[in-house]
C-alpha cells in the first residue's frame, strides 16, 4: 500500500484560536477518506494545510510525496481541490474559466474534456454565461469540473455535496466511488454523516481541532455500529470532558 497523505502533528493557531491541534493522520492510495466533524472543528483548516494554502503553526505533511510546506505550489499542481467557499472569477464565462485552469495547469485538449463535463453535470446551457451570473449549484458544478478535469491522483474536496440537488448528489457520489476504483484517492470533509457512511472507506473524526478517532468504516460496520451514532456518542463524550 502506498501512503498518499501523511500528516504529522499538524497544528494551526489563528491569533488565540486553536483551529487544529496535533493531528496525525495518514491516507492510503485508493481510499475515499472522509474527514468528519461539527462546524468549526477544523476540517477546512486541515484541507488548506494539506494543499499548501496555509502554513501549519507546528507539524509537517507530505502529499503524494511532496512536502506541503516546502513546495505548496508543487502540491497544488498534482492534486485537484474544491475549496469550501471560493467561487470562479466573476468576469470569465464558464468555459473560459476552464480554459484558464487548463492554461495554468497545462492541460491539453481542453475543449473536448470540458464538453464531456458540461454534458455529464448537465450544465452545457451555461457554458457561455459569466461566472458571476451563475447560480450557486452551477458554480459548484464548475468548481467540481476544474478539480477533476486533469484527472489528479488525489482530489481534496471541502463539503462536496453541499450545493447540489438530490439528483446531482447521487451522480456525484457515484462518480467519486468510481474514481477511487480506478486507483485514485479522494479526501473529503463533510458533516453529512449518512453520506460519509455510504461512500467512504476510511474516516477521521475531528472535534474542536482534536482528532478523536481514525479508522476504516468496515471496522465499524463489523461491530454492527453506525457512523452517525458512533460520531454523536464520541463528540458528546468529548464535549463533557
Amino acid at each position: 500500500m502506498t501512503t498518499i497523505i501523511e500528516a504529522r502533528d499538524l497544528s494551526k493557531t489563528y491569533g488565540d484560536v486553536q483551529a487544529l491541534s496535533h493531528v496525525t493522520l495518514s491516507v492510503e492510495k485508493g481510499a475515499l477518506f472522509g474527514l468528519l466533524g461539527p462546524n468549526g472543528s477544523g476540517k477546512t483548516t486541515m484541507i488548506k494545510m494539506l494543499t499548501g494554502q496555509t502554513r501549519p503553526t507546528v507539524g509537517s505533511a507530505t502529499v503524494l510525496g511532496v512536502d506541503v510546506i516546502r513546495d505548496p505550489v508543487g502540491v497544488r499542481g498534482l492534486v485537484g481541490i474544491i475549496p469550501e467557499q471560493e467561487t470562479p472569477p466573476s468576469f470569465l464565462t464558464a468555459i473560459e474559466y476552464l480554459e484558464f485552469v487548463a492554461a495554468v495547469r497545462k492541460i491539453t485538449d481542453i475543449e473536448k474534456k470540458a464538453d464531456w463535463w458540461f454534458d455529464f453535470l448537465d450544465f452545457a446551457d451555461k457554458k457561455n454565461v459569466l461566472c458571476k451570473d451563475l447560480s450557486r449549484g452551477t458554480r459548484q458544478k464548475l468548481m467540481f469540473t476544474q478539480a477533476f478535469i486533469h484527472e489528479p491522483e488525489l482530489a481534496l474536496i471541502d463539503e462536496p455535496l453541499i450545493n447540489f440537488d438530490p439528483i446531482m448528489q447521487d451522480l456525484v457520489k457515484d462518480y467519486l466511488a468510481g474514481y477511487v476504483k480506478k486507483g485514485k484517492t479522494i479526501f473529503i470533509s463533510t458533516h453529512i454523516l449518512e453520506v460519509a457512511e455510504e461512500i467512504c472507506s476510511g474516516f477521521a473524526i475531528l472535534h474542536k481541532g482534536t482528532l478523536l478517532h481514525t479508522g476504516p468504516v468496515t471496522g465499524l460496520t463489523a461491530r454492527g455500529e453506525h457512523l452517525p451514532s458512533f460520531f454523536l456518542s464520541l463528540v458528546r463524550k468529548d464535549r463533557h470532558v
Partner: peptide, 12 residues
C-alpha cells in the same frame, strides 16, 4: 481580485 480563486490552482 483576491487570491481566493487562485488558491486551488498551482499558482504562487
Amino acid at each position: 481580485d483576491t487570491f481566493g480563486p487562485y488558491a486551488c490552482l498551482p499558482v504562487a
